[in-house]
Amino acid sequence: MSLVLVRHLVMRLIRRKRFLGMSALASTAGLISWISGSGMSGPEATANYQVVMATVSAATLSIAVLFMSTAVMRDERDDGTLPFIFISPMSGGRFAVSSWVAGAAASALVATIGWLVGLIGLLAIGGEMSSAWAVLVLYLSAALAYSALFVPLGYLFSRSLLIGLGYVFVWEAILASAVSGLTASSVWRIAMSIWADIDQLPRDALDVLGSVEPGRWGGLATVAVLIVLGIAALAWAVRRRDAV
């Protein structure tokens, strides 16, 4: 991994207005749970927080990560600056790892901001702090896994956002919900399987999992596999596909 490249890419991502917009988007679930949980008792507020995190974040966090992660390479390409980083003596694998780390770091930052808003809301309405920690695990594992998918997408396709939105809204939200055989292909449900194993979730939140079983180690292993596959795909693309 090249720390110089990672730092450059992350700074580039967080300097843009998009970062503020995506942080706001990632915070919407926290705000919704805060507003909708007002007036509830502590356990009720916690359950409400968990349900909102499981359902609303499935769309808001995944879209925020989509915009941040696809932008890692797409911004460089669209701005015509990709040659400055591409023509450097680092292997395709190292280039790919650095790009993914940058996308994952920026996405994790956005996810953490979203989580912090949720945390403040949860504490304000008297919810349980332990649930918030578990949601941080959900947010971070989702950010890492989604970025493994979306960083290569940003390099490979000029319409990466459209493809990514198709994945989130058509594949994950409709097909993976309707067809039980496809449920395990949902990145959100993979991240949720980790969360569901480390926290006690209400039925409405567990329903989102569908046929995916809760399990922290299985979920983490799947996330790790996704990351390896994403980096391998990007390394392949760096060697085989046009950079500009």
């Binding site: 040659p83 400055f84 450097s88 003596p89 292997s91 280039f95």
Partner: peptide, 13 residues
């Protein structure tokens, strides 16, 4: 295939 050659190559796009 061998990106190490970029240590001696530069481009102004």
């Amino acid at each position: 295939r061998d990106r190490s050659v970029y240590s001696t190559v530069a481009m102004v796009p």
